[in-house]
Design a protein around this nucleic acid. Structure first.
Lengths: 341, 341
DNA sequence: TAATCTTTCTTGAACGTTAATGTTATGATC
DNA sequence: GATCATAACATTAACGTTCAAGAAAGATTA
């Protein structure tokens, strides 16, 4: 049933041209007579030829493939990013391979190795930031790459595209302050991640601007396991910790927070205002729209790809990077916050 | 800076063994002396060797790669499936490449072609079901594949793993009937998709069992664009169409429905009971939990991969498929439905 | 002690493509 | 009519592996 796969050689034999001529004809090269090209192309289609890009890649050195390495594709935030990268890549006739790291260092290393072993032309990676080692390793291989969503601010060698996390943190906090909240709980992500650290900067900046003292008790890192957020909220309420506003590192944590507050008998936004980050499609997970900080994931994805392609082409010309891009963030007010003045 | 990539040849020259010996040593083959293996492996690591799996794949004929082709990875339903497949594949040292079809026939064809050109060992695909052609094409290539989530019931050649859609439709409808609803709005997906068709069967079966006549006015296909659901709900309410229960094709449509009903001043579950499908929010706790039909995505994914690997190995032995698997579905009652007796 | 087996490695070719360079006929140029 | 350019194809080698054999050495057996 399978029927051996058709190769250039098979087409060459049928047409009495050489393999090379067939190859060039199928690529529509100008130095093959138009008529010959048409004839060969027609026959190739007829015979059901499918190019073997593995062989081509081995010979030519490039694979028209880029790797996208993220922590967790099932997280809608990354899901959207991966989708947008794929869409943009397709326009340039690139294929993507997706690798998960679970934000673990070993898996990150093996993901990078896998990508390299597949001869990808470039890599877009959201680094776990457990350490710099894996990225330095990647850098040394000379394969073009771009960080997305997170950066190593002090390492100029690592190009990146991020959103303006500090501004996002600032806008969220400022909005809560503007609407009358003074005690703002910040449920941050792990601080080794640049986005967490920079959103924290924004949080502090806004507090300072409004003369509100920073209360360490109100700055927490519930971590990525979802139940953690719920437990944390419960214990904060039980301990009687005083706050009326919540700024969450992402929308998922925000939803968790709202869920638990409601469960404990409080209203959102009646008793607490909650603001998230990422602006994940408002109603995929809940009918009650969440106030959030919007970071344009499609823009970030497209820019990351553009830069990567530029680096891929430049690296053929022997030049180097220096790309660092910060995409704007903005506040989107919805129903999980209210003015409490 | 780049520093040419280390190959087996480089290691061979340093060690005075042959390329082949080096290759076999790195693969830990028994017929190379243990000591030699260790020595070569150590040096390979030292020199920063990364295997060129493209070359290996060309020679050996298999790539240790499988393609996963879905409509939209940014849809959490597929996001979870892709993630689970990746996780399972990794255990067997397979890499996945992800391709989007946007449920469009041309993109589906080009996705399949791309996958084949990369010499993937197998394909897991959620077919657009716009037609059978692409899948027949795939079948003729002889490359092992498994359908996931959707099936062509009458084509025995196409192996699949789906969830029990009919049972799911039945359970959802039965539950609404059991809790006192007689007028049940069914917001279905496009009928050319098998899961939509089979859930519809379940819906009809439950109605029949309870002696409730089928009202065509209550069976709608709002489509995948989210605003469509909202418009539809609004116009149904405005037209005064009579219903108290809603069974939605997926959780996203369910959320949209709840959102619009609330916007129009109705309560859920006070005035309307709404039930979804996919049980997406099981992972992400949202403020208002949705009653839903749970289909085990991780189980489906794992089974699909198991079957695919089996087919990959069998196809080397020259055997053929015949795998059709239906994973159980069950009802998960949460807060968007209530007993209205 | 010759024959046979093991162990451990080597040899040569092949996978299907593309890059670089060569060849041939044809027509243009002076 | 000799020279040169051009169009259109051919030839050869190479990409980095792995596969199928084979071979040299010592160990084992009859």
């Amino acid at each position: 049933m399978a029927g051996k796969r058709v190769t250039l050689k098979d087409i060459a034999e049928r047409t009495n041209y050489t393999i090379n001529t067939v190859s060039r004809a199928l690529k529509d090269k100008e130095d093959i007579a138009l008529e010959t090209r048409k004839k060969i192309q027609r026959l190739a289609k007829e015979m059901g030829y499918i190019e073997n890009s593995v062989a081509g890649s081995l010979r030519s050195g490039y694979s028209k493939t880029i790797a996208v390495i993220v922590g967790d594709i099932s997280n809608p935030h990354f899901g959207i990013i991966v989708k947008e990268i794929e869409k943009a890549a397709r326009k340039h006739r690139y294929t993507i391979i997706v690798l998960n790291t679970e934000d673990r260092e070993e898996l990150e290393e093996s993901a990078i190795r896998t990508a390299l072993s597949k001869n990808v032309d470039g890599i877009i990676i959201c680094p776990s930031q457990r350490s710099e080692d894996n990225i330095w390793f990647l850098q040394r291989t000379g394969v073009p790459f771009v960080l997305i969503g997170r950066r190593f601010k002090s390492i100029p060698e690592f190009d990146y595209v991020i959103c303006d996390d500090e501004k996002g943190g600032y806008l969220a906090t400022k909005y809560l302050l503007d609407t009358g909240h003074k005690r703002i709980l910040f449920l941050n992500g792990p601080l080794h991640i640049s986005s967490a650290e920079e959103r924290y900067e924004g949080y502090k900046k806004a507090l300072q601007e409004y003369g509100v003292p920073l209360d360490p008790q109100l700055v927490r890192e519930p971590g990525l396991i979802q139940s953690e957020t719920r437990h944390l909220i419960r214990s904060l309420i039980e301990e009687g910790v005083d706050f009326t506003g919540v700024f969450a590192f992402n929308d998922v944590i925000a939803w968790e927070t709202i869920y638990m507050l409601q469960k404990l008998g409080y209203g959102v936004p009646k008793d607490y205002s909650v603001i998230g980050f990422d602006n994940i499609n408002a109603r995929i997970f809940s009918p009650s729209p969440l106030t959030s900080i919007s970071n344009s994931k499609s823009k970030m994805s497209r820019r990351a790809l553009d830069i990567l392609l530029k680096k891929i082409n430049e690296s053929q010309a022997g030049k180097s990077g220096g790309y660092r891009e910060v995409v704007d963030t903005r506040l989107v007010v919805r129903d999980s916050t209210r003015n409490s003045h």
